[in-house]
Amino acid sequence: MHHLLIVDDHPLYRLALRQTLAAGLAGARIDEAGDLAGAQGLLAESPDTDLVLLDLQLPGTHGLLALGELRAAHPGVAVAILSGQDDPATVRRALAMGACGYLTKHAGTEELHAGVRALLAGETWMPSALRELLARTPRDSESESLAARLATLSPQQLKVLQRVAEGRLNKQIADELGIQERTVKAHLTVVFEKLGVRNRTQAGVLLSGLAGE
Rank of each mutant, 00 (worst) to 15 (best):
residue 98 G to D: 09
residue 118 A to T: 03
residue 120 L to D: 03
residue 128 S to I: 04
residue 116 V to Q: 11
residue 92 R to Q: 10
residue 123 E to H: 05
residue 115 G to S: 06
residue 116 V to D: 13
residue 125 W to A: 01
residue 93 R to M: 12
residue 105 K to Y: 10
residue 108 G to W: 13
residue 92 R to F: 03
residue 129 A to Q: 11
residue 93 R to N: 13
residue 89 A to E: 15
residue 98 G to P: 10
residue 123 E to G: 00
residue 92 R to W: 06
residue 88 P to H: 01
residue 125 W to D: 00
residue 112 L to M: 15
residue 126 M to H: 03
residue 99 A to Y: 05
residue 96 A to W: 08
residue 128 S to L: 11
residue 96 A to E: 09
residue 115 G to R: 04
residue 98 G to A: 12
residue 100 C to F: 01
residue 92 R to Y: 05
residue 99 A to C: 10
residue 97 M to Q: 15
residue 107 A to I: 06
residue 96 A to K: 12
residue 90 T to R: 10
residue 108 G to P: 09
residue 119 L to T: 02
residue 109 T to Y: 12
residue 110 E to T: 14
residue 116 V to G: 13
residue 106 H to V: 05
residue 96 A to D: 07
residue 122 G to R: 01
residue 117 R to S: 13
residue 101 G to A: 01
residue 101 G to E: 00
residue 100 C to R: 15
residue 100 C to T: 14
residue 89 A to P: 13
residue 97 M to T: 07
residue 115 G to V: 03
residue 115 G to C: 06
residue 112 L to Y: 04
residue 90 T to F: 02
residue 121 A to W: 05
residue 96 A to H: 10
residue 117 R to E: 12
residue 87 D to F: 00
residue 96 A to I: 06
residue 113 H to F: 14
residue 95 L to E: 07
residue 103 L to G: 11
residue 104 T to V: 14
residue 120 L to W: 05
residue 90 T to A: 15
residue 93 R to D: 03
residue 101 G to W: 00
residue 90 T to S: 15
residue 124 T to Y: 07
residue 114 A to D: 12
residue 129 A to H: 13
residue 109 T to H: 13
residue 108 G to D: 12
residue 91 V to N: 07
residue 124 T to S: 14
residue 121 A to Q: 12
residue 116 V to N: 13
residue 95 L to C: 09
residue 130 L to Y: 00
residue 121 A to D: 14
residue 130 L to K: 02
residue 87 D to V: 04
residue 103 L to D: 01
residue 117 R to Y: 08
